[in-house]
């Protein structure tokens, strides 16, 4: 049985290596992927189409914005599904673990975290807002933001963090993030374009069509950031306590 499991692995390996010798030359600018009209269009025209200097952000939030919307939905689904799986599932009573000691949160740790958390949160906003110009964006900013709450939960305990960010709020914020994203898409549809055609927003905001895309992308990224923040914290809170939401790690 043990040997049997090597067979599919070996078959896949031989297959993949067989194809690897047919790949285009390593790093060549003439490889189909680098030379294709799609890729060239992204590099040459992003500035003209959207005025965003960071092409990755432009492709992510605008050219392939529909993908990214569902990516955000995937994050939201993960949060909801974990909640669904773990809610009311296990023993309500807390079992004391073998190595657990009752102790107050450590003074040094908590005071360091007091100093750190605001910095992390400001940095999260920076990463989110600066995603147009430098690497960054909604997902990265959202994860940082979520991490700041997780840090609070780690250094005090989960209840303290849950007072600041109740679990119902994670669901609401996660939903609002998607609502914001899809809402911007829907609004641009009502204004006469296709779904997610941000340039139509120029009809109601005093900006050019390109800058409308630029600003709508920021709105979309904020939506992504909200969802990711909320769900990251919700995942931590549920997974660290088997869904009981008491005590935590």
């Amino acid at each position: 049985m043990k040997l049997l499991s090597y067979i599919p692995v070996l078959v896949v390996g031989v297959l993949l290596l067989y194809a690897a010798k047919d790949f285009p030359e390593w790093g060549s600018p003439d490889a189909p992927a680098s030379k294709s009209p799609v890729s060239s269009h992204f590099i040459a025209n992003t500035g003209v189409d959207t005025e965003v200097p960071n092409m990755v952000t432009a492709v992510l939030a605008d050219y392939r914005g529909f993908d990214t919307m569902f990516e955000t939905v995937v994050v939201f689904i993960a949060g909801m599904a974990v909640l669904a799986i773990l809610k009311n599932s296990g023993r309500k009573k807390l079992v004391k673990r073998e190595f657990e000691v009752d102790a107050e949160p450590d003074l040094i740790v908590t005071n360091t975290v007091r100093l750190l958390v605001p910095v992390i949160q400001i940095f999260a906003f920076y990463v989110l807002a600066h995603g147009h110009v430098s690497p960054g964006g909604g997902f990265q900013g959202g994860v940082l933001m979520g991490a700041s709450f997780i840090l609070v939960a780690l250094s005090w305990d989960l209840e303290t963090a849950l007072i600041r960010f109740p679990l119902n709020w994670t669901t609401i914020l996660g939903g609002l993030g998607i609502f914001l994203y899809a809402g911007i898409g829907l609004l641009s549809m009502f204004l006469g374009g296709e779904f997610l055609d941000y340039s139509e927003l120029a009809n109601i905001f005093p900006v050019s069509r390109e800058m409308a895309r630029y600003h709508a992308m920021l709105g979309v990224e904020i939506g992504v950031g909200l969802t990711v923040t909320a769900i990251m914290f919700s995942l931590y809170a549920n997974l660290s306590t088997e869904g009981r939401l008491q005590r935590g790690l």
Binding site: H41, E194, D197
Partner: peptide
């Protein structure tokens, strides 16, 4: 249906979804 208004006549196919 081209999402984001990346229509086929103005942009290469595959730019948008």
């Amino acid at each position: 249906y081209l999402f984001g208004g990346w229509t086929l006549d103005a942009y290469p196919r595959g730019v948008g979804i």
